[in-house]
Design a protein around this nucleic acid. Structure first.
Lengths: 196, 196
DNA sequence: CCACTTTCGCGACGGCCGTAGCGAAATTCC
DNA sequence: GGAATTTCGCTACGGCCGTCGCGAAAGTGG
C-alpha cells in the first residue's frame, strides 16, 4: 500500500492497480466537483459513481483533499498559455483565465477548500502548490522574463489581488480592474494593445 | 430559536439566554483554536470545556464556521490601529501586524478554514467579511485617505500579496518584502521613516 | 396564579471521514 | 506449479457535524 498517485509507477510484485479504476475515480470526482458543487462531493458518491469500493479510492488518495488536488491538476492541465510576444497583453489574458475560473461559484468553493486543506496539511499544500500554483507562477514569471526586475514580487502583485478579491473580500473583478493592476505593476505607458 | 450572535439583543418573552454561557463558549473556543490548533477544535470539546451542552452552542452559532468567525472577530478587536501621521510607516505597521498573525501556523490554518467556509456558505462569508476583513479594509482605506487615488485598488495591492503568499504559495514574508510592496504602490521616494 | 414562550441539558439519529481487518483475486518470483 | 505480495470489495468501527425531539427550568404577559 503506497497511496501513490502516479498511474503507471512502481510495478511491484503483487496484483497491479486497476488503471481503469484510476481513470474512473478521477472522472467521477471531476464531474461531482465541477458539476454538482461542494456538498455533492463525498468519497462515498465518488466511489459509487466510479463503480469502485471506497477503500479503493483511499488506496490512491490518502485524503479527500488529495483527491481534490488531483482533480484541480487535471483541469489545470488543459489550459494553454497565451504567448503573443506582447507582455501586457499576454498577462491580461492569463489573468482573465484565472478570473474565469474563480468566477464560477463551484470552482471558487473548490479553491477555498484547497486553501484550507493546504493550510491544514503540509503534504497537501506541497502537492497543491506544485500542481496548481506552480504552473501559474511559472507562466507569469515566463512572461515577465524580459528584463523586468524582481519577477517574483511582480507575480505576487498581479495574482495576489485576484485571489484576495475572489476568496476573501468577495469584490467583483472586471476587465478594467485587471488592466489597472497591470498598469500599476508595469509602468509602461499607453493602453494594452489587444491586436487587430 | 434565532441563533443570534449579539449577546444582549432581543429580550423576548421566554427564558433569557445565559450570558455566562455566551462568554464561556467564546472563551473555550478561543483557547482551543489559538492554543490547541485545528484538530483540537470540535464543538464537542468546546461545549464540554465551556460546561455547556452542545445544543446550547448550536443555538448561538448555526455552524462551526460561524463560531470560528466570532472567535476571529474577538481576537481582531484587540488590535489597535497605528496612526503616526506618516502614511508609509503606518501602512508598514499595519501589514506587519497582519503578517504576525498569519505567521503563526495555527492562525494560518484558522484563516484557511475561514476562507473555505466563506466560499462554501454565503452567510459565513458575509459575517467573516464584516467582522474580519472589514476592519482591515477600513484601516487601510483610512490610511490612504490623504489624496491617493483609488484607495480600494491600493488596498488590494497591499493586502492581496500578503494573503497570497501566506495562504497560497507559502512563500515567506519578511520586512523587506513589505517595504517593497509599499514602495511599488506608493510611488514616493526614499526609505520609510521609522522615527527615532 | 396561570398560560405562554424561550432556553437548557440530554439523548438519539443520519451522514460523512478515515482506519482496520477479512477473504478472494491477480500477478511476480522461485 | 507454489509461495509471496499486492489490490479489490466488503463490513465495521470511532469520531465529528448538524438536526430533532423531549422534559425541565426560567422568564414574561394577562
Amino acid at each position: 500500500m503506497s497511496t501513490n498517485i502516479e498511474p503507471g509507477s512502481a510495478r511491484g510484485r503483487g496484483r497491479p492497480r486497476d488503471g481503469e479504476a484510476d481513470r474512473a475515480i478521477l472522472e467521477a470526482a471531476a464531474e461531482l466537483l465541477v458539476g454538482g458543487g461542494y456538498d455533492e462531493f463525498s468519497l462515498d458518491r465518488v466511489a459509487t459513481r466510479a463503480g469502485v469500493a471506497r477503500t479503493t479510492v483511499y488506496r490512491r488518495y490518502p485524503t479527500r483533499s488529495h483527491l481534490v488536488v488531483a482533480v484541480m491538476a487535471g483541469l489545470q492541465r488543459e489550459a494553454p498559455l497565451p504567448d503573443t510576444g506582447d507582455v501586457r497583453r499576454d498577462l491580461l489574458e492569463l489573468m482573465r483565465s484565472m478570473v474565469s475560473v474563480l468566477d464560477r461559484p463551484s470552482m471558487r468553493r473548490l479553491a477555498g477548500e484547497l486553501v484550507a486543506a493546504a493550510a491544514r496539511d503540509a503534504g497537501v499544500g506541497e502537492a497543491a502548490r506544485k500542481l496548481w500554483v506552480g504552473r501559474r507562477q511559472a507562466a507569469f514569471a515566463l512572461l515577465l522574463r524580459a528584463g523586468w526586475r524582481d519577477p517574483s514580487v511582480l507575480v505576487d502583485q498581479l495574482a495576489g489581488p485576484i485571489y484576495y478579491r475572489a476568496l476573501i473580500t468577495g469584490d467583483p473583478i472586471d476587465d478594467e480592474y485587471l488592466r489597472r493592476l497591470i498598469a500599476a505593476v508595469l509602468p509602461g505607458e499607453g493602453p494594452i494593445d489587444e491586436g487587430a
